[in-house]
Nucleic acid binder design. Structure first.
Lengths: 334, 334
DNA sequence: TTGTAAGCGTTATCAG
DNA sequence: CTGATAACGCTTACAA
């Protein structure tokens, strides 16, 4: 591969001149510029990014650490991130893994020197320790992370309010036995949605019943399993709130297999409002989250922080959620 | 940020020793190793990736160039790529854009020196020129690209066979007026699926009618529009094959808005078998493509090629497709 | 406008 | 087993 030296030699100029041609900045005489360009393309030269970012200490790349890449939620987040990054002419260095403890450190280590900033989705409730391994004074935006982490800028979603609104809505339809399929253990969003669920019941004058809080982990299978467990009870709930849409989908298929009609026999609501929800039968009532905006905003903030001279952005930005009523909750089906 | 020099100084050793500790390879006395490690973590040191890859000329990263990040198809491809990359301890440098001509060159340029190999999805029929800007003798796997490109290894799916099977199936159900919603103009997959559509009609003794081939671009909106156009005809088709599932979904909602029942009034089939399809009402008959395997296989091949000593892998690997019959085509609904 | 030369933070090659 | 030191490919004062 041709280097800057090869080009300089072939063009009969110094490497500095070639460099200047590529950085546009400094002035180079028009004809030398053209000549260099010509020689460079002939040789198939393009600057080596590693060398460049070594000297400039800028990579024009942002690192993205996600716990997973599966499902519409994450792909929407990435799309949002990509949107904003592309707009700002930044690249994305992607790493997906359960970023706890050593894993996180390893991922960060390997990104050292290759990224100008980081977007980290770390929804673990007790990830404080892991988070300590994030470099100090390095631009980071945390996604869906507990609020008590004042050391970094962060983005969150109105989990509590959204969940409460959903439960209030179900209660308003006359349901009293409203079950919850919980999100992943030790997950921040899941914990908040649980709080919202209980608050919603409270507001409706319903005493929360621990037996109606089913375990789940945000996966379709866990939703399916939880729904199965409900059906084996003597007195099954009349409405179910799944802490995300994937689990709602799993629950729906379990109900269907059991011969239950949704919403006539049992009402169903989800959370996230992934695109798929609107096409299901019945269409899924859910709590809408502008997922791609989550990634997009995080990236925009990070890019801002990357402008030098910008003071550290330690704010917490919360995305609103809105209840989207479709047919699965029974409000529309008469 | 602490550099190797800082660590060396603080530990009272040379930079060479610190380097050796981090590369594991060479022998270092146990206690010096431990000491260095200790000092390094105290200082929060981790090696600079740019410097490292500059000297080793290896980045442990593969570049991924996709035309888009929208929808389940691409997210599945990325997930497959990530799966294999993660397994091989490689990172992903992502770039999404319409990679034609100058755009492609720019993207490649910015990846120079930062990636060890490339996965490029370039389904443009006439992208030969663009592809010439791919570096020679650089490991590349092309995704969904015309076959006539013998200069690079590539992955493809059985577009032709899948489309033909779908049309044969519809014809077998008694349909004679089978419409097609075409994929994007100048797109390789789209062209192949069109060929398959015509071949399927041929095999059933039906004369292809250009008026039944509706324009589309793989987007939901274009599917919706095409369906609308069909309904405005005096004699509408009895079955529709959309060249991908997104367009099928768009068509479905157009039919529904017009008060048509699928499959009773009009049969519908798609292509790709995205996860959403199985949850729709009616569930979507489609041509199954193992999309994540597409990305995964491409990555595995690339990683293989990255082992030095491996001869250039110029093969073309084709992923099989299978017809998945669900309710939207009417075969199951009686 | 152009060239010289000093790094950027590593690893690799030699000596010791 | 450890230490100097020369690269790697580039940018950027500083000189000319």
């Amino acid at each position: 591969m041709a280097t800057i030296k090869d080009v300089a030699r072939a063009a009969g100029v110094s490497v500095a001149t070639v460099s200047r041609v590529y950085n546009g900045s400094a002035r180079v005489r028009e004809d030398t510029r053209e000549h260099v360009r010509q020689v460079a393309t002939d040789l198939g030269y393009s600057p080596n990014g590693a060398a460049r970012s070594l000297i400039t200490s800028r990579s024009h790349t942002i690192g993205v650490l996600l716990p997973d890449l599966y499902g519409e939620f994450f792909s929407e987040v990435i799309r949002g991130i990509d949107l904003a990054a592309h707009r700002g002419k930044y690249h994305l260095l992607l790493s997906s893994a359960r970023h706890e403890g050593p894993e996180l450190e390893a991922a960060l280590r390997s990104m050292r020197g290759r990224v100008d900033g980081l977007i980290v989705m770390s929804p673990e409730l007790d990830a404080g320790a892991a988070r300590r391994s994030l470099p100090e004074n390095f631009p980071v935006i945390l996604l869906n992370t507990p609020a008590n982490d004042a050391a970094y800028g962060s983005m969150a979603v109105q989990n509590f309010e959204g969940a409460r609104a959903m439960v209030s809505h179900l209660a308003g339809l006359g349901h009293r036995r409203i079950a919850l399929i919980r999100g992943a253990e030790r997950n921040f969003d899941a914990a908040e949605r649980l709080r919202g669920y209980r608050a919603g019941l409270d507001a409706a004058g319903i005493t929360p019943d621990p037996a109606l809080e089913y375990a789940g982990d945000f996966s379709e299978e866990s939703g399916h399993a939880a729904a199965g467990a409900m059906l084996r009870r003597s007195e099954r709930p009349t409405a179910v709130f799944a802490a995300n849409d994937c689990m709602a989908i799993g629950a729906l298929s379990a109900f269907r297999e059991a011969g239950l009609r949704v919403p006539q026999d049992i009402a169903l609501g989800g959370f996230d409002d992934i695109p798929m929800g609107r096409y299901m039968e019945p269409a899924l009532t859910s709590v809408h989250v502008d997922t791609s905006a989550l990634g997009e905003r995080a990236t925009m903030r990070l890019l801002d922080a990357l402008q030098d001279g910008t003071p550290r952005d330690l704010r917490r930005e919360t995305l609103p959620t809105t209840l989207v009523v479709r047919r699965s909750c029974g409000a529309h089906s008469g």
